[in-house]
Each structure stands twice: as structure tokens, then as C-alpha cells.
Design a protein around this nucleic acid. Structure first.
Lengths: 202, 202
DNA sequence: GTCTATATAGCGATAGAC
DNA sequence: GTCTATCGCTATATAGAC
């Protein structure tokens, strides 16, 4: 009996993972407002009503996707923390990872403006906890890098943090790729260079 | 008779300017999808049907607002070109101007992702012409600055151009202002510094 | 839990009187 | 050109059978 229950739960869990993966891609490619619950259901291959049995609202769908990428980010931070390199190299690696996720079409882009989604996320404990954790761990590297003279110490640490977050959804990367003059790796390196070294010559 | 016609046309022109100004603010604060034609009409103080006598669609409303800011940009470029400074200083001034427009709540932010608006704009001659003109004039300063060793010559000029455009709608600025730790001028200077000088120490 | 069918609401756009 | 009133469509969310 317990075996069957466990099996069924695994099936449900797999289904939910498929839903989240689909939501993640739609959020990445068209954003929250343009994404419709109908197309998510169609993409997963289930009825819309079934989808609502798993997640009570469209906002919860998006929140689940955000929690997913934040967990992936936390896993990357763990792995990265084990590398014995300077703090700024950790930050560069994080930025590169975020850009790679974006290029893979798996970086959900939230509306930075006010919307029903933002208010929902601000009351979502699982989301907020993960954002806080990621921010604290990045913040530690930022202040360490500033103390070591690797990051401009005149910049407020939050400014550095916000800038890194913003680059994860930077529209410059897709534009450069659409231009076609640069390979994916070259486009990534260009965005990374402008982020850390700026536009001006050194 | 001609006087009365001229007068009435002036009234209509003023009304359309008021509409565009309202659209501009809504596009800046909530974006195209979240903006509704109803609230624009209510904000201007006319009926929705009247609004549709001036502009045939929601996309045309947004296009008119974009043409408006591009004309303001072109006027600024004219004024800036008269200053006898190095090319990079022109670019810095342009970036500062864009951030000021954004802080004033008058920088409409288009969805960088696919949408009905982007396809409409891509067929809008007045919009395309102005974008091309602005891009060419910025492009001249960019290549000049690279030739003078002021802008990193390794960066593709389009990458510099896209980066400047992207900073006009950078979410980092509103986030820094919302934090409250920095004054508006300080937040602007921080964003400007990260754009041109990067996060890394020099 | 999954489905079909439907309720409900908001929004872009239009009809028609004045 | 301006208004009121309404159409037509789409999208979120739900009811109820199985």
C-alpha cells in the first residue's frame, strides 16, 4: 500500500516538475503577462482544470518557477563556494552562470514594475526566503571583494547586488545574439566585460 | 473662418499632446501590456471612443509616445553636438539624460520580448526612422570614442549602443531609489559609473 | 486528479445618437 | 468629435461528471 502511494506521489511530483519546467520556459520567452495558463496546460499535455489542482493560481505557478531557479542558483553557489578563488572571481562565475541560464531560455524574467505578480511574490515565504539567502551569500562576496580592492569600494554593496541581478535578464544579450555577428560565447563575454569593466577603456 | 479652423486644430493638437503625455507616463510606470485604454481615457478626461478618433489602436498610442521621446532625444542630441567635448563625454551626457528622463517617470519601457507592440513598431515608419537616426548619431560618437581610445575598442559598436539603450530602462535605478539610502543624484551617478566604469575596481 | 463545459470579468474596439 | 452603450474576444478560474 505504501509502495503504491509512494509511486503515485512520484508520478505527481514528476508531473509538477514538468509543469514548472514549462512555466519556466514561457516566463523566460514571453514574460508573466503574456504567458497564458491555457498554453501551459497545452504544453504539458493536460487540461487546464487539472493544472489548477496542482497550483491554485497563475501567480503560484510563476512563484514555483522562481523557487526552482533560485534553488538551482543556491546549488551553484554551494559548488562555487568550494572553489579557492578570489571573491570577485566568484561573482564573475555567478554572472556567467546567470547569463548561461538566460541563453538556455530558462531564466524567467519578472516584471520589475508593479503587478499582481510582484505583490504575490512579496507574500510568498518560500520565494522570499530563497531570495534573502542568495542575496546574503552574494553580499558576503561583494563586501569581501570591495575590502580586497577588487570591486570598486565607492559603490554601495546593494548597487552591486542589484546590478548583478539586472544582468541576469539583460536584454543586451538576446539583442547581440539576434544581430548574428557574434557567437553565443562571444556575446556572453561582451556582456560580462561591460558589466565588470564598463564601456570606457581602461 | 481660417482663424476658427486653425484655432480648433490647435485645440485638437493640444488634446493629442495631452493624450501622448498620459500614455507616456503609463508606459513608463506600468508598461504596455498593463496599460489599459480605459485608464488613459479616464486620465485625459475624455471618453474612450473619443480617444479612438485620434488614434486607431492601442499600438498606435504607444507608437506616438515613442515618437515623442525620440524627438526629445533628437533635440537633446542636437544641443549636445554643439558642445566641444570628447566623444565619450557626449555619450556620458546622453546616458545621464536618459536616466533623468527615466527618473522623471517619462521613459516608456517597451517589452524587449516579442509582442503585438514590437511587430506594430517594426512597421511604423515614423518610429523606425527616428530610431535609425538616433542610432546613427550615437554610433558616430561610439566609433569616434573607440578610435580615440576612450571606449574599449574590443567591444563591438552595436554592443555599446545596445548597452546604452538598455540603461535607459535599467531597473537598477528605481531599485536604488526605492532603497532610500541614496539621493536621486547619487543613485544616478552610481548607475552611470557602473555603466561606463564597470563594477570592478580600476 | 483528470476531464469537458461554463461562469465571470476585463479589455480592445465599435455603433449610433447628438 | 464627443458621448453612452455595447459587442466580441480572450483569459483566469470553477463546476461537476467520471
Amino acid at each position: 500500500m505504501t509502495e503504491r502511494r509512494s509511486f503515485r506521489q512520484q508520478v505527481l511530483r514528476a508531473r509538477e516538475d514538468a509543469i514548472i519546467a514549462s512555466v519556466n520556459r514561457f516566463l523566460a520567452e514571453k514574460g508573466f503577462e503574456a504567458m497564458t495558463v491555457d498554453e501551459v496546460a497545452a504544453d504539458v499535455g493536460i487540461a487546464k482544470a487539472s493544472l489548477y489542482k496542482h497550483f491554485p493560481s497563475k501567480e503560484e505557478l510563476a512563484a514555483a518557477a522562481m523557487v526552482g531557479v533560485l534553488d538551482r542558483a543556491l546549488a551553484f553557489l554551494d559548488q562555487e563556494a568550494a572553489r579557492p578563488v578570489a571573491p570577485i572571481e566568484h561573482l564573475r562565475a555567478v554572472a556567467r552562470w546567470m547569463l548561461q541560464v538566460q541563453m538556455a531560455g530558462e531564466m524567467p524574467s519578472l516584471p520589475s514594475q508593479n503587478s499582481t505578480l510582484r505583490t504575490a511574490l512579496m507574500q510568498h515565504r518560500g520565494y522570499l526566503d530563497r531570495v534573502m539567502t542568495v542575496s546574503e551569500r552574494l553580499g558576503a562576496w561583494i563586501t569581501a571583494a570591495q575590502a580586497a580592492g577588487e570591486i570598486n569600494p565607492k559603490l554601495p554593496p546593494e548597487a552591486v547586488l542589484y546590478t548583478l541581478y539586472a544582468r541576469a535578464c539583460d536584454p543586451v544579450l538576446p539583442f547581440l545574439r539576434a544581430g548574428g555577428a557574434l557567437s553565443d560565447e562571444q556575446a556572453l563575454e561582451v556582456v560580462l566585460a561591460t558589466c565588470f569593466d564598463g564601456l570606457a577603456a581602461r
